[in-house]
Amino acid sequence: MRKFLALVLIAALGAVLIAAVVNLPEPGTTDSPVHTHVSAGYIKGGHEAGGADNLVTAVLLNYRAIDTFGEVTVIFTALIAVLAATSLAGPTERSGTQNIDLKTTRVPVSPVVSFVVRLMAPFIATFALFVMLKGHELPGGGFQGGVVLGAMLILLALFSGRTDKTDDEELPPGLRNWIRAAGPLVFGALGLTGLVFSGWLFSLPDHPFWREMVMIGLELGIGIGGAAVLVGLFRALREG
């Protein structure tokens, strides 16, 4: 019954949706409003206006910085949320015996894998840093770099075989909290510096050098903060 109703609904919705999308401008054509209006302005303004060769980064960090501020806030919030909302009590009787206590159970790890992971880690970290720092010129950026960095750290945590140690692993707790909040905080700083430098909140400095520096700072904040959040999420989920 439920399935049937769902199918009916989906069929109806699908018809409506398709009716709507086929009435949109044809995708891929360059004369559609998507290309002729705002995007065209971005491209026309070039990297001078956006402050970055990579227009996507320019959009993220410059034209629509406030969006990105919201974005980093969301992911930061997600971490806080996970930390705040995960089960406050320990395992209840209801969860039964099949529940495995991840904190104390050591997962047997092949020494080969463990070695390779540790070997790879510096390279991955370097790559992540590169993606962050060059994000304004090449494909990439803070988020991408942050994800790579985070993935590396998760990888390390998974295969380091040190699952029983929950705290004071990578960073001191005080510092860790600051780094996790790096995303919103660097944007907050951007807001204020923008006000100082150019009179607008969330604006980049006009001077190319400072602009580049600020962008790099932002990318680093997003990236490192993002990585910290990802790791935090991972740990919070693992610890339950």
Binding site: S39, Y42, I43, V59, E71, V72, V74, F143
Partner: peptide, 13 residues
């Protein structure tokens, strides 16, 4: 167009 990419990036996060 760069804009959708930026949007999607944000959306993904």
């Amino acid at each position: 167009s760069p804009l959708p990419h930026a949007l999607v990036l944000t959306g993904i996060v």
